[in-house]
């Protein structure tokens, strides 16, 4: 029995990685209707900045702060770039997907050049501590990761529900013409949505770096796993992304534990396809089309 419990806890830890990536994707989608394939690169950028700050002798928290600021700035710049064309004409959604793919390629290459391509690790404050389960033990920073995912989810949820900016973001996501008629500054809100999604990506990257070896090449897989988690939640609900991420994480851990590793790799794509075919709107999401008018 302890073995099953062990796999579930490991699954929750790994699932939080997917959930954190999924949260970033949902934050941008819920704020602007755009799907961002470069979310993994925001996370990698945050992690690599933090690794270098720690390397320069500073502590974990200053590293986290610097990472968040740098990645949020990158989000701001990209937000401005992506909002320009939307000002004066309707944007074809599928063309914008390719825009973010281009950004992903550029960021992966630039991070490789600036930070080198060697995989890095960032010791979390709980490095070395373990949580025993029977004779097995789970590294404590898995729990930190789970707590981090819950914290980030809480922050995103609180921000959307209880702040004026969050309210205007939800209005834009619900329908751009309705928001425009209500006097919302749609252009500015889109840039804010990008910045916040980047901010979530920065925090997620730093948290994840204590568990997953971070190298520029890991960005696209991180982003794709985030998509899997977000889609399960219906692409528009932060809760859906967290539930989706944890679901895939635990399913993978159990498949790895009781079946074999090949099936473990197939879990994320299979679960994603199953959800898309059985419940197109995602497990939690309502089927609602977000128009970027």
């Amino acid at each position: 029995m302890t073995q099953a419990a062990y796999f579930v806890v490991i699954g929750l830890g790994v699932g939080s990685v997917y959930a954190l990536s999924g949260l970033g994707i949902v934050t941008l989608f819920a704020g602007s209707g755009l799907a961002n394939f470069a979310q993994g690169d925001f996370m990698v950028l945050g992690a690599l900045v933090a690794v270098n700050v720690v390397g320069a002798g500073f502590g974990y928290l200053p590293a986290l702060a610097t990472a968040v600021v740098v990645v949020a700035a990158a989000g701001l710049v990209l937000g401005g770039l992506f909002t320009l064309p939307m000002r004066h004409r309707r944007v074809d959604v599928d063309v914008v997907i390719i825009g973010t793919l281009g950004v992903a390629t550029t960021m992966t290459t630039l991070s490789g050049i600036w930070f080198g391509r060697q995989p890095q690790r960032l010791d979390s404050p709980l490095a070395g501590a373990f949580i025993p389960i029977g004779d097995l033990q789970v590294p404590a920073h898995y729990a930190l990761l789970l707590a981090g995912a819950a914290l980030v989810f809480g922050a995103v949820h609180w921000f959307h529900r209880h702040t004026d900016v969050g309210l205007q973001l939800r209005a834009v996501a619900s329908s751009v013409p309705a928001a425009r008629d209500a006097g919302v500054r749609v252009g500015r809100m889109l840039v804010v949505a990008w910045t916040i999604a980047a901010l979530v990506g920065g925090v997620a990257g730093v948290l994840v770096a204590s568990v997953v070896p971070i190298a520029p090449e890991a960005a696209l897989p991180l982003g794709v796993n985030g998509f899997a988690a977000a889609i399960i939640g219906g692409l528009a609900s932060p809760a859906g992304a967290v539930v989706g991420g944890l679901l895939i994480g635990v399913a993978e851990a159990l498949a790895g534990g009781y079946l074999n590793d090949t099936l473990r790799q197939a879990v994320a794509p299979v679960v994603l396809l199953a959800v898309l075919i059985l419940r197109p709107g995602g497990l939690l999401g309502r089927t609602r089309t977000v128009r970027v008018a």
Partner: peptide, 16 residues
């Protein structure tokens, strides 16, 4: 005799 993926976040299952 088992296999594993190089990009796996956790390999404790196969070691168990």
């Amino acid at each position: 005799s088992d296999t594993f993926a190089v990009d796996a976040t956790d390999l404790s299952a196969v070691l168990l």
